[in-house]
Simulated scan of single mutants.
Amino acid sequence: MTRTWFITGTSSGFGRLLTEQLLDRGDRVAATLRTPEALDGLRAEHGDRLWVARMDVTDTGEVQRVVDRAFADLGSIDVVVNNAGFGVFSAVEEATDEQIRAVVDTNLLGSIHVVRAVLPHLRAQGHGRILQVSTAGGQTTYPNFSYYHASKWGIEGFCETVAQEIAPFGIGLTILQPGATPTGFGGALASGPVMPEYDDGPAGDVRRSLADGSFVLVNSPEKITGAMIDLIDSGEVPLRLPLGSDTYHHVRRSLVARLEEHDAGREVALSVVRDDLVPSE
């Protein structure tokens, strides 16, 4: 079955790989990115099966215009992939205000802008899938990534809510959680001047492990994008899909620890219920 996909952030990484794989198998792709000329080679090879537009997800008006034009030109879009991302790699005091704003504007607000722009079209056509690219860091945490985590935990909460609201319209939403993968994303991480106060602790340990290669990027980017395609082909609509051995193990460990801590607070939680009400289990 031939499908039409709308993908953000297609200049490199998962967005570029996914675009290439979909075109190779005969699907149509509406690819958006800030530098459209980066896809000139693919356009020459695949012709009108590749629709390209410049779009910065932090520009709300541009997002709306590009989404509207994509649906007008292509007629129907089956899958929307919210992939564009930005990362800040620094301890909490090291990042600049501009870097903090950029990561939130891109990963959280930018993804929200895209979802809000596509939903009227998906509702009108009565079907569609949204794939939100998050990360293992949307459910667990690592030193030096506090602002990245803030944006990813935020978008996961947003998407979990939206998934409930849009299900009656025949629209499915899945949060994708890739683990550490050699896509070039790490080299594009913004950072600030290193503060010795943090370099002597967990933040410095993570920095050094990335620098010396002991932090291994264990997952295959081609297999991850292949799993995204397989998910759509399967027709299944899980709320979350872990993609990577590190994602599976790290997130599971985090969830178990959170549940244990949650259960440890049961007595206190129930003790604050109003006296005229029976505590609920």
Rank of each mutant, 00 (worst) to 15 (best):
W5K: 12
I7W: 04
I7L: 12
G9I: 02
G9S: 06
G9F: 00
S12V: 08
G13A: 09
R16V: 10
Q21E: 05
G26L: 05
G26T: 06
R28Q: 08
R28N: 06
V29I: 05
A30T: 11
E37A: 15
A38V: 00
D40S: 15
G41Q: 11
E45W: 14
R49L: 11
R49D: 15
D56N: 11
V57H: 08
V57W: 04
T58L: 05
D59V: 04
D59I: 05
T60G: 13
E62Q: 15
E62D: 11
V66T: 08
V67W: 02
V67P: 00
D68S: 11
R69T: 09
R69G: 03
D78F: 01
D78Q: 07
V81Y: 00
N82D: 11
N83S: 07
N83Q: 08
G87R: 00
S90E: 05
S90D: 11
V92M: 15
E94M: 06
I100R: 14
A102I: 11
V104P: 03
L109H: 14
L109W: 15
G110T: 04
I112M: 15
V115P: 07
R116G: 07
R116E: 10
A117L: 07
L119N: 06
A124E: 14
G126C: 07
Q132I: 13
Q132L: 12
V133F: 05
S134E: 08
A136N: 08
G137M: 03
G138L: 02
G138P: 03
T140M: 12
P143Y: 00
N144D: 12
K152G: 01
W153D: 02
I155V: 13
T161G: 15
V162A: 01
A163M: 04
A163D: 04
I166C: 01
A167F: 08
P168F: 11
G172Y: 02
T174I: 06
T174Q: 11
Q177N: 13
A180R: 00
A180V: 10
T183S: 02
T183F: 04
T183A: 05
G186F: 10
A188L: 14
L189Y: 09
L189G: 02
L189S: 04
S191L: 07
G192V: 05
G201V: 01
G204L: 01
D205K: 00
R207H: 09
S209N: 10
L210C: 05
F215N: 07
F215K: 02
V216K: 15
L217N: 04
V218N: 13
N219A: 10
N219T: 05
P221I: 01
E222Q: 15
E222D: 14
G226M: 07
G226C: 06
D233K: 10
D233Q: 09
S234Y: 15
G235A: 08
V237D: 09
V237T: 14
L239N: 10
G244V: 10
D246A: 09
T247L: 04
H249C: 04
H249K: 14
S254D: 03
L255G: 08
V256K: 01
R258K: 15
E261D: 14
D263T: 13
D263L: 13
A264D: 14
G265L: 14
E267F: 06
A269D: 14
L270K: 13
V272Y: 14
R274S: 10
R274G: 06
L277Q: 12
V278G: 01
